[in-house]
Computed example of a mutant assay.
Amino acid sequence: MSNLTGSHSNEPHTANIAGRLNWLRAGVLGANDGIVSVAATVVGVAGVTNTPTPILVAGTAALVGGAVSMALGEYVSVSSQRDSQRALVEMERRELAEDPGAELAELTGLYLAKGLSDATAQQVALELTEHDALAAHLSAELNIDEADEASPWQAAYASAAAFTIGAILPLIAILLPPTAWRIPVTFAAVLLALALTGTLSAAIGGSSKTTSAVRLVIGGALALAATYGIGSLLGASGVI
């Protein structure tokens, strides 16, 4: 029996597959931000003092502040995106109610521009309009699916959770080992984690895994070296 939908059993023909990949990629990048920012903070403090308490306090503050900042940023960003999408939907709904003939001609023109013949474009536009005029125009004109609306709260929670998961690693790496091993263990753990997140991010996006991993490892190493160096200089100078 032929497959009338044109899909294959081994292909992910879900309507929101791109959205899910974007969410996954955002989660990986959020975890990466947590790793780098908190690692840089605790390594910088460790350059000044070996006492665990200041390191724990600074790392925890960086974790909480970063998670809240990430959540707030995602909430505002997704809320703005959602509001813009709703405004476009309402504008299209109003135009369809006020002048359906002009909207049908516009839809026909869009399919003509895609390479369909005049007769086929008219037939496609007419059938889609009869089925769901609003959905047809949102898809063809704006590449919008009215049902595919992101949740600001979900985005905020996901971003904060990803950041927190990433931030826990450098806290554990710098607090558990003996004093002499704190910095080497933290550097190794953070750079390994960055290599893994870079590889995963590239796998999701379809780019070079090696390039992505090396880029993140180099950037993370520079951040750790810079903050540790600044902390050591401040500690040695007696300023702190």
Rank of each mutant, 00 (worst) to 15 (best):
S201A: 12
V78R: 01
I218V: 15
I168H: 05
V42Q: 03
A173H: 07
G166P: 07
G231V: 13
S117I: 03
T129Q: 07
L128T: 05
L176T: 07
S232I: 05
K114I: 07
P52S: 05
D132T: 04
A158N: 05
M70W: 06
I218R: 03
G47P: 02
T227H: 01
A125F: 13
L107F: 11
I230W: 01
I218L: 13
A223P: 06
V28N: 02
T120G: 01
A46N: 10
T186M: 02
Q81P: 02
L56W: 15
R182K: 12
S80H: 07
A133S: 15
S7L: 15
A158Y: 00
G206C: 10
S9R: 11
L200R: 04
M91K: 14
V78P: 05
T51C: 03
R182D: 01
L128K: 10
V42S: 09
A226L: 14
W181C: 04
L175Y: 10
A71Y: 00
E141P: 00
A150G: 04
V89R: 12
D33L: 11
L176W: 13
L112H: 14
A223T: 11
A213I: 12
A189E: 03
N32V: 07
N22S: 05
A221I: 07
L196Q: 05
A167I: 00
L96E: 14
A133E: 11
G66D: 08
D118S: 14
A26Y: 01
I174N: 04
A105M: 07
I35R: 08
A160G: 08
S9C: 03
A121S: 11
N16G: 02
A195T: 12
S37F: 08
D83G: 10
V36H: 07
L63M: 14
V124F: 15
L233W: 13
L126Q: 13
L134H: 01
A58S: 13
T51H: 05
A167C: 00
T197I: 09
E95A: 15
